[in-house]
Simulated assay, not measured.
Amino acid sequence: MLIDSRLRTVYGGRGGSDPEQEQLVEQLLTSLGPEGIDDVLDGTCTLIYLYMKWLREAHEAHEKDVVEYVLPTLVTSLTMLPGSVPPEAVPTMAGLAIAAATGLSPTLWRKQYGDWTEAELTPLEATAFLLAEHINRVTDDQNFATRMITEALTQVESGAE
């Protein structure tokens, strides 16, 4: 929901973030507690994994390497956000995306480096957002990435019943 909300803000032409929305997000995260925050982090890593899986398959269909074509754009975009993404977080986000691109769980890949730091939370969100936006641009559909995740969740729910 957070990534979809960010995409709508960008596509709607509203610059910056909505202070009211930011307050709601902060209240939600505060209400979750430590275990809930871990679930949000795992969920964001899952989004990155699913986005990179889709991008890998789309690039392979055209005999192209997803790392070669997606990572430079992702890294360039992250470095253009110095207020939100500190330079030292960029290699971590690139590594996370590469892990996902090669079929590794970003959550498991990250565990080898310890817990997430507070300084990495915004870059993690930015990475998920930039990948979703990249997918939307590739498909020329502003809702494709959100719809893809919604459909995946629907399939998981129907399989659990």
Rank of each mutant, 00 (worst) to 15 (best):
M93G: 04
G95I: 10
A128Y: 04
A99W: 10
L96Y: 02
I98E: 14
Q112N: 09
P86Q: 15
Y113A: 10
M93V: 06
L108P: 00
L121E: 04
P87Q: 12
A89P: 00
T127L: 09
T92I: 09
L131Y: 08
A97W: 06
L131P: 07
G103M: 00
L71K: 03
T127F: 08
G103V: 13
V75P: 00
M80E: 13
I98M: 07
G103T: 03
E125V: 15
A126I: 07
W116Y: 04
T127E: 02
V85E: 15
G95Q: 13
S77K: 13
V70Y: 02
T73N: 02
T117S: 12
A99Q: 14
A100G: 05
I98W: 05
T127Y: 09
E125W: 02
T117D: 08
A89N: 14
S77T: 10
E133V: 07
A99M: 10
P123I: 03
P72G: 06
A119S: 08
T107Y: 03
S84G: 11
T73G: 04
E133N: 13
V75K: 01
Q112S: 12
G103F: 01
M93Q: 09
Y113H: 11
A89Y: 03
L131G: 05
P82Y: 00
T117K: 14
T79D: 13
W116G: 02
S105D: 13
P72H: 01
L121N: 02
R110L: 15
L131V: 08
Y113D: 12
E133M: 11
T73P: 00
L124M: 09
V70S: 09
F129T: 10
P72Q: 02
L121M: 02
T79C: 14
A101K: 07
A97H: 01
E133R: 15
L71A: 04
A119M: 11
E125Q: 10
L121T: 09
Q112H: 06
R110A: 14
L121K: 03
S77R: 05
V70N: 01
V90H: 10
E125T: 14
T73W: 03
A94Q: 12
P72T: 07
L96A: 00
T92S: 04
V70H: 04
G95R: 10
P91F: 01
V90S: 06
V90Y: 13
G95F: 14
A89V: 08
A101H: 07
D115E: 06
P106F: 00
P91C: 03
W109N: 09
A100P: 15
L124Y: 10
D115N: 08
W116D: 04
P72A: 08
L104F: 05
P72V: 03
E120P: 01
L131I: 05
I98L: 06
L121S: 02
P72Y: 01
V75C: 00
D115I: 01
A119Q: 12
S84N: 07
Q112V: 04
L104C: 02
P123E: 06
T79W: 13
T122H: 13
E88M: 09
S84C: 10
S105T: 14
L74S: 06
W109M: 08
L131F: 09
E120W: 10
E88R: 03
T117A: 07
L81K: 15
S77P: 00
A100F: 09
D115R: 05
